[in-house]
Design a binder for these strands. Structure first.
Lengths: 367, 367
DNA sequence: CTGTTAGCGCCTTCAG
DNA sequence: CTGAAGGCGCTAACAG
């Protein structure tokens, strides 16, 4: 009698909403419910309908945690950025989210704020959450990062140029092309005194842009003036500072190319502040083509780098790896194009106009 | 003999890195490892040290999924925003992340893009990931949302004013104060013809600002001109359109208050485009004080709403609830202050200057 | 203070 | 095509 050795009734379970409840209500086994949810085609349509009905009625939502635990895939894509507030990132993040959600992934965003300690924490958090892949979009990369993530066999993609890395995929932005276009555009207008504000030169990607600038200059036979090569920090404030510095020089440049749009905006602000007119007195070119660039006054001429391409590239490069479709022959290097968008911050430099005037007068009085 | 009934060797387990491995290596039980990790103070320091050492050596990271599954708390905070690219959000998100990480939470961002269908998906994703709380920062809210989330007993906070809701906390922004300051500032300068561009009036928060504007006007005895009350959409493009519309009117306003900074930037752009000078010909006030507002040309006068306060408020309101500290007497309504930041887009209107001139001349020739 | 054990909710063989 | 049963990695009683 009372055979069942009265088990200690641990914590009373408040009737949870789980797969079991659904199975009970649909009068099938939990296996069938599981299969239905996962859209396994071999489920009897009749049962499936019963299951969906029960799910609906019970307001059941599968528990992603449990699912992840057993399946080993979290359906989470990590995203490490430098700082969310740099307007370049939100546009990228938005695209990234769209692409990820499209494929059934969620994204986990962490920001380093340029702080190595935070970077460590970001990596740890990624690993603990068992993300299925990580896209690194920081403007600076620590090597330990790679090690940790690689050690956990987490697919990694650098959304930015990097030297070839073991076990990591890379998205290469074609900086050279865009920057060459920018420099040539300036040169055609008549500029010979061109300055450049780079990002922090500790960053590989900043170096690439810097080098691309120097090469472009060289290509058209202009010798760079070292005092016009300034190291910025990709922020508006950095652009402001750099421009102020440039303005104090005796030998001022007539045009400036910036490593990103925020820097360019800072530069414009500094220039306008001292009464310089843009583009009449001074030409400015940015990089990124963030949304607001078009609505500055005057609208910023800039080099566009497509966020969508970048995001799509990252997700595409990550997902095949995730879905085991890695045929082994996946491209692990994708190149993102760049393109000059000419707006209103560039024009013929002052002195050229002076030179031109007599010619124009002559030309127009000729016929 | 061979007593052990040879178990079917399912899938061969590649020696996983789990709490067991750590326990083995540290020569303790898994319980001790668990306790050590969770910093339960009753663990013998000697054992704890062994455990930490093993963890270090093995590069062990606790599996958040498993943890969440058993403990019932995911340590995830959901964040639903309208669109990430509106510069107001990134600043908020950044703060929110900081606050959350500080307390050991991760954030899960989803964006609705003003699409009700996406909103549904956002909610579903939140529930499936078993977030411990959700902050809603969309510029538009669907009621079903509340239902679903409430049904799952997920703490909810609206980061914006809303009418009292059951089971949901609210952060109220003190729109009235900031907007009154703005209107009065304009009035003191001499403006009587003041326009207002609202957000989409389907949104409660847009209505609040709209109403605050009307009340402020009334308070100082100005009758609103209905044709100067325009419905925008919180985007730069919306501001552009609204301003173009206003410009076609025969009876133009001399100043404009915008429901957010992006709108104001659009307005400025439209104004400058037709040769109007700001603030000489036209005064503009924004709302939010996004980072870039200060660096527009001219720098935008705007009404600041602290992102940090907003984020802190949201996390604070969510976390006590999460940590079971809910004494029942928690404040569920927090008010976020606003404040006028006067920069360079507001000045005395043209006609007032005309009126003033003789007075000034008179005054200066008097002594 | 430590170890043993029973699940958390689900997927996935494997046997019907 | 369906159901029963064994974990996934971890925490939280409970028993020593």
């Amino acid at each position: 009698m009372s055979a069942k050795k009265a088990r200690k009734p641990r914590t009373r379970k408040p009737p949870q909403m789980d797969i079991r409840t659904v199975a009970l209500r649909a009068k099938v086994s939990i296996a069938t419910v599981s299969r239905t949810i996962n859209r396994i085609p071999t489920v009897d349509p009749v049962l499936a309908r019963r299951v969906w009905k029960a799910i609906e009625e019970l307001d059941y939502f599968p528990n992603t945690q449990a699912r992840a635990l057993v399946s080993g895939k979290s359906h989470l894509l990590g995203l490490i950025v430098s700082e969310i507030t740099n307007p370049f990132f939100p546009e990228l993040i938005q695209r990234f989210e769209e692409c990820a959600v499209e494929r059934g992934y969620e994204i986990l965003i962490t920001s380093t704020n340029y702080d190595p300690r935070r970077m460590t924490s970001c990596v740890r958090r990624m690993i603990e959450r068992k993300v299925d892949g990580v896209a690194v979009m920081t403007f600076g990369i620590e090597e330990p990062l790679l090690d940790q993530l690689a050690k956990q066999k987490i697919p990694l993609v650098y959304v930015d140029s990097r030297p070839a890395q073991p076990a990591a995929m890379t998205l290469n932005v074609d900086y050279r092309h865009g920057i060459r276009q920018g420099v040539q555009h300036l040169a055609v207008l008549g500029h010979r005194k061109i300055a450049f504000i780079s990002g922090p030169l500790t960053l590989h990607t900043a170096q690439l842009r810097h080098q691309a600038f120097l090469d472009s200059l060289k290509q058209i036979g202009i010798a760079p003036n070292m005092s016009w090569l300034i190291e910025g920090d990709h922020t508006l404030e950095g652009g402001l500072r750099a421009m102020k510095h440039l303005l104090q020089s005796n030998d001022r440049p007539t045009a400036i190319l910036c490593s990103n749009d925020m820097t360019a905006i800072g530069v414009m602000h500094a220039a306008l502040d001292v009464g310089l007119r843009i583009p009449d007195d001074f030409s400015v070119i940015g990089f990124d083509d963030i949304h607001i660039a078009e609505f500055m006054y005057p609208p910023l001429t800039t080099i566009r780098m497509s966020c969508l391409d970048l995001a799509r590239g990252a997700v595409a490069v990550l997902c095949p790896a995730l879905q085991g479709q890695a045929s082994g022959a996946e491209k692990t290097h994708v190149t993102i194009p760049t393109e000059l968008i000419v707006r209103r911050t560039t024009s013929i430099p002052r002195d050229t106009i002076q030179t031109l005037k007599p010619l124009i007068r002559a030309a127009s009085s000729e016929p």
